[in-house]
């Protein structure tokens, strides 16, 4: 039940970001300066935290989506759905820990100096 709620919430959040992301990328058709100006906001510490949140949402949605597919198409899927949920959560925690440095590292250098 809660994995279903989380799948919906993360899905809607990712979809709304996708609209913004297509629009900001469309600025490459306006001018290199305008594109670089907008992309610069993606490199600020606050937006870096939002990016970390985006990665969190996408990773959960991706891993849980694979679990949903396994439940639907694998004959033993429904029997192991709970174990698969804990695998999803465990893998998500590991990947999120691994994403801290690459995603938040440059923001930390901006805030604390390098």
């Amino acid at each position: 039940m809660w994995s279903w709620v989380a799948h919906r919430v993360t899905g809607v959040l990712i979809f709304f970001f996708l609209f913004v992301h297509v629009l900001d990328t469309a600025l490459v058709r306006v001018s290199p300066e305008d594109y670089d100006k907008v992309v610069a906001t993606y490199k600020t510490p606050i937006v870096a935290c939002l990016e970390y949140g985006l990665v969190a949402a996408i990773l959960f949605h991706a891993l849980n989506g694979l679990r949903v597919i396994a439940v639907d198409f694998w004959s033993k899927g429904p029997r192991y759905q709970k174990q698969m949920l804990w695998s999803v959560v465990g893998l998500w925690v590991v990947l999120m820990a691994g994403a801290i440095y690459p995603v938040l590292g440059h923001a930390a250098r901006v805030v604390f100096g390098s």
């Binding site: 290199p32 594109y35 670089d36 870096a48």
Partner: peptide
């Protein structure tokens, strides 16, 4: 998407290398 995230946010300096030249 995970490949996209890996390229844009993780490899080669993360998001700091993204710009018009990178897209081109």
């Amino acid at each position: 998407v995970l490949g996209h995230l890996l390229i844009q946010l993780v490899l080669d300096g993360g998001v700091s290398k993204v710009g018009f030249a990178f897209v081109a």
